[in-house]
Amino acid sequence: MKMLKNKRGMEMVQVAILIGLAVCLGLIFKTEITEFVNKTFQGLNS
């Protein structure tokens, strides 16, 4: 049982790290992402 709990804990840590990394990348590249989305939607509306 201890092995199962340990694996679940490690999975939660991995998920938390991935979410944190995604948020950091989003904050760093916020302007680039915003420009890309705006250009994409402008192209779809034209």
Rank of each mutant, 00 (worst) to 15 (best):
K2L: 14
M3A: 15
L4W: 10
L4Q: 12
L4M: 13
N6S: 15
N6A: 15
K7L: 15
K7V: 14
K7T: 12
K7C: 09
K7P: 00
R8H: 12
R8T: 13
R8N: 13
R8F: 14
R8C: 11
R8W: 13
G9Y: 12
G9S: 12
G9N: 13
G9P: 00
M10H: 13
M12Y: 09
M12G: 09
M12Q: 13
V13D: 04
V13T: 10
V13C: 04
V13L: 09
V13M: 09
V13K: 14
Q14A: 13
Q14D: 07
V15H: 12
V15Q: 13
V15P: 06
V15S: 12
V15N: 12
A16T: 06
A16C: 02
L18D: 07
L18K: 14
L21A: 12
L21Y: 07
L21M: 10
A22P: 05
A22G: 07
V23E: 05
V23M: 08
V23L: 10
C24G: 14
C24D: 10
C24N: 13
L25H: 04
L25K: 06
G26A: 06
G26N: 09
L27N: 07
I28H: 03
I28R: 05
F29N: 06
F29W: 04
F29C: 02
K30I: 03
K30D: 06
K30H: 10
T31L: 05
E32M: 01
E32H: 01
I33W: 00
I33V: 07
I33R: 01
I33Y: 01
T34V: 07
T34R: 08
T34L: 10
E35W: 02
E35S: 03
F36L: 08
F36P: 02
F36Y: 04
F36Q: 03
F36T: 06
V37N: 00
N38P: 00
N38K: 04
N38V: 06
K39N: 10
K39M: 07
T40H: 01
F41M: 03
F41G: 00
F41K: 00
F41W: 04
F41D: 02
Q42G: 11
G43L: 01
L44A: 06
L44V: 08
L44E: 03
L44H: 00
L44P: 04
L44K: 00
N45G: 05
S46I: 10
S46N: 10
S46H: 11
